[in-house]
Amino acid sequence: MRSKSSRRFWRQVAIHAVMGPLALVWLFPLWMMAVFSTMPENGIFSPDIELLPSDQFWINFQALQAETGFLRTLFVSVMVALVSTVLSVMLTSMAGWALVRYRFRGKALVTALIFGTMTLPYFVVVVPQFIMVARDLGLSNTWFALIVPPLFNSLGVLFMRQAFSMMPRELFDAAQIEGVKEWQIFTRVALPLAKPTLAALAIILFLASWNNYLWPLLIASEPTMMTAPVALGTLIGVNRVSWASIMTGAVLLTLPMVIVFIFLQRFFMAGITTGAVK
């Protein structure tokens, strides 16, 4: 009879035999993106496919900067993603806290309305949102237009509501009896305990903002307020597509997210599995 550890070994071998090639298939386009970002424009479509990086990255970056003012658009993207993530985490955690902590008339209706918005496709919302912000409020090409409308995120409210509702109610009762103010209970007891969820939510919101294309495309067409993904989009012209520049920009856009994910993935996994089991 084979021992338990030997069976475990062969099971691991089988899993790796399947998952390894799958991971390579998934990583291949990303690798090629990185390779193309280091190749001259004409080299990308050469019949001999190069699988290893070349030395043209800096030249490609200079071309990208010249064509789009990429550093400025990167700055806009960073600012929009950072500010909207911080504000959105604050707003959604406060909303989640209110839904868990307080009893008020119409709470079920408010909750249903918030979560009901999750069922609306973004494309249904984006046109009236554009009309309101651009035409009625006249706020095109402003930080406000880029940051504020996407702030109200029902997924974030759901996340935080779930995190707070799983905390023992006695913790808050104990603090209340001790005379701790409601705001202090929220900031000193509830939020520190929700750190993994907050981190996961922050990553999700940052990613969503960083990758957002449609709304910034509609609301910020001036070069000074353009975000990086939109700037890359402008490189796809009717007659000419600057693939080397696009790939260089794509690498620069992907890199921060990979780094953030590597450092925060333990929070991310803890956050998305929150509530899965008792």
């Binding site: 006695e170 104990a174 603090a175 001790e178 005379g179 701790v180 202090q184 000193r188 007891v189 305990l193």
Partner: peptide
């Protein structure tokens, strides 16, 4: 908080992110 009572809960209700000393002093500090 103004009733002059203090309560001990079945689940202890200790703040997990604070040390024992911080747990004891939390209400007074706040």
């Amino acid at each position: 908080s103004d009733r002059g009572t203090a309560m001990v809960f079945q689940s202890y209700a200790l703040y997990p992110h604070m040390t024992v000393a911080q747990n004891l002093s939390f209400g007074l500090r706040m």
